[in-house]
């Protein structure tokens, strides 16, 4: 429904910097949420479906042409972009090439992109990112990236080594017969409250989560509350976001008896989930305001 509305809204869009573009998969709930918020305001919104690249959606000298739906979006009409294009394609297929063209446009041509592809790559490797995040007021948990070795013993958790999704579990849940062929990230478990901080334009929106499970995202009883961060933690979050070159970030913290620990900086945060849980839309309103200000 949203897709049809978006597409018929701009059958041929050429006016300079007049359109907000959403980039990613059509079934991405964050994009759906953002599209709804944007359409509540008055701007023109066009969705570039990542799966249609090089198939129905063709990049021409002057813009994007959707062959099946018949709409056209001029490159010059792009005023701002919300980018959730996550997977890079390799190879020489038309689709892979189209994605590289899109990456180039997002990186070097289109204005006001949240976030540009190069900055989005910073959490491609969780351990590499943690190394970058070390040395601030936020502690970094002891971490081991390994394959072909026994996992650390004691109170540790394991998770995907890259930005691919995985449910975080205690190492005790690992099946010893299944130590497999892929590198896995093990981290010493930090007992405390999870705090998700979204940083945008130098402001922090923090949510505290109380949950009994290791991974609160899969805990039905988890309780979400808006919270205020200590000034120095807020400043550290803003500084790290800036250091990674991000306009928008989702930072995972744990507050424990030992202080504040940083787990990860998400470069493409699923902020909609938190807004739904706390019933507030401060971040999405700020994003909509920003996008509205970007278009003529």
């Amino acid at each position: 429904m949203i897709q049809r509305t978006l597409c018929t809204q701009s059958p041929r869009t050429t006016r300079a910097r007049s359109v907000i573009v959403l980039v990613g998969l059509l079934d991405d709930p964050v994009l759906v949420y953002m599209a709804r918020r944007l359409m509540e305001s008055s701007g023109s919104v066009v969705w570039l479906d990542q799966r249609a690249l090089g198939v129905d959606l063709i990049c021409t000298a002057s813009g994007w042409q959707h062959l099946r739906q018949g709409w056209f979006l001029a490159h010059q009409s792009v005023g701002a972009v919300y980018n959730r294009c996550m997977h890079v394609c390799w190879g020489l297929s038309v689709a892979a090439f189209s994605q590289r063209i899109l990456t180039y446009l997002l990186e070097s041509v289109y204005p006001n992109v949240i976030n540009r592809p190069s900055t989005g790559a910073s959490n491609f490797s969780k351990l590499a990112q943690l190394i970058q995040l070390s040395g601030t007021v936020l502690r970094v948990p002891e971490s081991v990236l390994s394959v072909g070795c026994m996992p650390p013993s004691g109170d540790w958790v394991f998770k995907s080594a890259s930005n691919q999704r995985s449910v975080v579990h205690a190492v005790s849940r690992l099946d010893q017969a299944r130590y497999g062929a892929e590198p896995v990230l093990y981290q010493q478990r930090v007992q405390g409250d999870n705090v998700r901080v979204h940083v945008f334009q130098g402001r922090c929106e923090a949510v505290r989560i109380e949950a009994v499970s290791v991974d609160y995202r899969y805990c039905a009883d988890a309780v979400f509350r808006v919270c205020t961060l200590p000034k120095q933690i807020e400043q550290a979050c803003v500084k790290l976001t800036h250091q990674l070159g991000l306009m928008l970030s989702g930072i995972d913290l744990i507050e424990s008896d030992q202080g504040w620990t940083i787990l990860e900086v998400n470069t493409s945060p699923g902020f909609d989930y938190f807004e739904r849980r706390i019933g507030q839309r401060r971040l999405s309103r700020a994003l909509v305001r920003y996008f509205s200000d970007c278009i003529d």
Partner: peptide, 24 residues
């Protein structure tokens, strides 16, 4: 020096890697 690892399955099985949308 070390022995070659025999290629096996994955440590994190697919049931721990949900395709359904979740927070990132």
């Amino acid at each position: 020096p070390g022995p070659a690892q025999v290629p096996r399955g994955l440590t994190i099985p697919s049931e721990f890697r949900p395709i359904i949308s979740c927070v990132m």
